[in-house]
Amino acid sequence: MGVILLLIAFSLLVALTFLGAFFWAVKSGQFDDPQTPAIRMLFEDKPVSTKNKTLTKKMD
């Protein structure tokens, strides 16, 4: 039965990790603005960096 103690301790640890993640999310401002991130995810991260080069080459 002693293993239950270990399991419970472990489950609590996992739960605490999630609580920690929630704290991090709140503190980093993820709950401040619920609207903009939904728009932001539609953007490409690096719009043209590679294509830019080919273009300048073409121009030369």
Partner: peptide
């Protein structure tokens, strides 16, 4: 003054509520 503390309080209460129910 962002209202982040309320979220944190809610998070802690929810976390403890769930675990105490389990135990």
């Amino acid at each position: 003054a962002v209202d982040r503390r309320l979220w944190l309080k809610l998070g802690v209460a929810g976390f403890c509520f769930g675990n105490i129910m389990l135990f």
